[in-house]
Design a protein around this nucleic acid. Structure first.
Length: 204
DNA sequence: GGCGTAACGGTTGAG
DNA sequence: AGCTCAACCGTTACG
């Protein structure tokens, strides 16, 4: 059995460092107990990950893979487990926070709070949203997201067309930005082809 | 000796 | 612009 790399197996952002690169990144490369080179906190290069999966598929025992590729057996075990679960050799998405969803209802409520009390702090708005059950602690927009929304709102108040506020246009612009971020994080998980397919099916 | 996994020190990136 | 924090990483050590 052979394992082929599909487009979806490739992460768009991290393509993997080459060991030649390690020399050009002073202080980055470290050596493990097996003599292998790694960068602490960073995923192994794709070609090593692929090699691990290929060797396992060829029936090579994990301990042999570990010794031959000079990668810790814990790492070999992790990568093979992940491959079994997801079918992908790619590492997970590192860093970032879960995108908060500011629904039109939440946006409207934020605007209402601000109208009632123009001096209200963003963190107070967030607290009220949670207290009044509009969102829970995990889904509530972050304080910085709220303040950005309010900043946007304030600048829009200055730009009125025929005496009417452009608030709706700009708040939907805010929502579009969140949707774009959701898509971007999907891109790193699914890969470009899958995302194009889902987009064409209007699934995301 | 081989394997699974918790703990650790590190990086990353959205909020 | 800079900080926070929760996600991930690979290595190490233990059972």
């Amino acid at each position: 059995m052979t394992v082929t790399t599909s487009f979806s197996m490739m992460r768009p952002c991290f393509t993997g460092y080459s060991f030649q690169d390690l020399g050009s990144i002073p202080g980055q490369g470290r050596v493990n107990q097996l003599g292998g080179v790694f960068i602490n906190g960073r995923p192994l290069p794709n070609h090593i990950r692929l090699k691990i999966v290929e060797m396992a598929a060829a029936g090579v025992r994990p301990c042999v893979i570990s010794r031959q590729l000079r990668v810790s057996h814990g790492c070999v075990s992790k990568i093979l487990n992940r491959y079994q679960e997801t079918g992908s050799i790619r590492p997970g998405v590192i860093g970032g926070s879960k995108p908060r969803v500011a629904t039109p209802e939440v946006e409207a409520r934020i605007e209402e709070y601000k109208r009632d009390n123009p001096g209200i702090f963003s963190w107070e708005i967030r607290d009220r949203l949670i207290k009044e059950g509009i969102c829970d602690r995990t889904s509530a927009p972050s304080v910085s997201a709220i303040s950005r929304l309010l900043r946007g709102r304030d600048s829009e108040d200055d730009t009125k067309i025929d005496g009417k506020s452009c608030l709706h246009f700009h708040s939907t612009k805010f929502t579009r930005k969140l949707i774009f971020r959701e898509r971007y994080s999907l891109l790193s998980i699914l890969g470009f082809k899958e995302l194009c397919f889902l987009s064409s099916m209007r699934l995301c």
